[in-house]
Simulated scan of single mutants.
Amino acid sequence: MKILALADMESKALWDYFDRDKIQDVDLILSCGDLKASYLSFLATMVKVPLLYVHGNHDTNYNRFPPEGCECIEDTIFVHNGIRILGLGGSYRYKPGDYQYTESEMRRRISKLRLALWKNKGFDILLSHAPASGIGDGTDLPHRGFETFLHIMEKYEPRYFVHGHVHANYNARSFQRLNHYRETTIINAYEKYKFLYE
């Protein structure tokens, strides 16, 4: 299955200069947040595959104008063609606002999913906005990763962890598109990244 992951910056290649042929092989689109609702709605209209999303810390406008034709999978496990996708959006709390969480708040969100995780026998992809602590995250509070993401990767060994939030232009030399943690391949989906789920 070919998956297109998106985060943080609208791709001109997918919007301003859209060419259906370039993504005709895509079977699923995953959005990691901080993208315009109109951009996601456009892609959901133009590419006839499911588009699943979680919120970024700047997606407060989704409360009034959510992306049309897309499915929010916050705090749930969504199963697509047998692939179990766990959605946990938001960033580390750095000021008052929606879609920001302390470490303990994120831990509680995961704790509330215990039954769903048990019923689904875990998950295959973690879809989040923020990264995990110490793996491709930032040193500042707004871009800190969650330590609890390390724990759920250790426990459930998902194939992939797809996130955004840390932009390539923050520090181009230290930006890492791909990382690994134990059995999990970690993808920073900044702008766009296509990968094959086998």
Rank of each mutant, 00 (worst) to 15 (best):
L141P: 00
E183F: 07
E105F: 12
D59G: 12
A5F: 10
Y156T: 09
P158C: 03
Q24S: 13
F175S: 09
K95Y: 14
I186F: 02
S128D: 02
D137T: 06
I85M: 03
L4V: 04
Y190M: 05
L196Y: 15
Q24Y: 05
Y197M: 05
H55A: 05
E68Q: 13
Y101G: 02
G97M: 09
S174R: 11
R84D: 04
K12T: 10
C32A: 15
W118I: 10
G69V: 07
L51E: 01
G82Y: 02
K12P: 15
P67G: 07
P96I: 05
N120R: 14
V26A: 07
F78S: 15
Q176S: 09
E74M: 11
N188D: 06
I77E: 02
Y53E: 04
F175A: 00
D75N: 15
N81K: 12
R93A: 11
L115Y: 12
V54G: 01
L178E: 13
D25S: 14
L127Q: 04
L14F: 08
R108Y: 15
Y160V: 01
D25V: 08
K36G: 02
C32T: 09
E68H: 12
T148K: 14
V49A: 04
Q176I: 07
A132H: 09
E147Y: 15
G33A: 09
R107F: 11
K48I: 02
R159H: 12
K12M: 09
P96G: 04
S11L: 06
T45C: 10
E154V: 11
H55Q: 00
H165F: 01
Y99R: 01
P158E: 05
K36V: 12
Y101H: 04
S41P: 03
S31Q: 02
H143S: 04
E103F: 13
F161P: 04
N179M: 13
